[in-house]
Amino acid sequence: MTLCKKKAFTLVEILVAAGVTAIFLGMAVSMFIGFGKNFSAGEGSAVLMQECALFVARLRNDLNNAVKDNTNSFITIDENQIKLNVYDSEEGKVKPVIYSAVPQANGCYNMTRRVANGSSRPIVNGKIASFSWQLKEEVISTGTPPIKSIKRYGVEIDLKMGSSDLKNKSFDFKTIIYPIRVNKMR
């Protein structure tokens, strides 16, 4: 009878190896979860930032080309709507442009833009959680003779981007847009 010599792991070896493996795997999994969470939060914010940037760029462009009408007015702002007269340099015409915030079932808003009698086109689809816009009129005395008072207009925008499908993600943005053409029409 020959004895078969089998070399196996001892209980201590198995326990130590399992412990080391558990530590490595634990670290790897927690890193993976942490990075994954940050990445998904960042990715959601990037989507919101992009939508915000597009909306602000479009509004800034329209405000910078806004002109006063016969009544010396260039803009009407109410709670959910901005109406302005925008000079279209391609056609050489002044056209009314309307921005409307349309409330959605999820509590967020769509932002649409309509030119003259055309149809409303969406700029932001349901990703505005809350917003406010306000016209600021500032009277400045020129100080040097001949002293006169001038008005500097600015439109203050406060946006909070977010939506129910991008849970826990938000992008807050605040700015003042100074309509250059209007401010130069003195």
Partner: peptide
């Protein structure tokens, strides 16, 4: 993952800096 997230943060700050300058 980490560098992707950092890139998004960089874009955020660039966008805000751009807006601050324009303002």
């Amino acid at each position: 993952f980490s560098s992707g997230n950092q890139g998004i943060q960089m874009t955020d700050y660039e966008f805000r800096a751009h807006n601050a300058a324009i303002e």
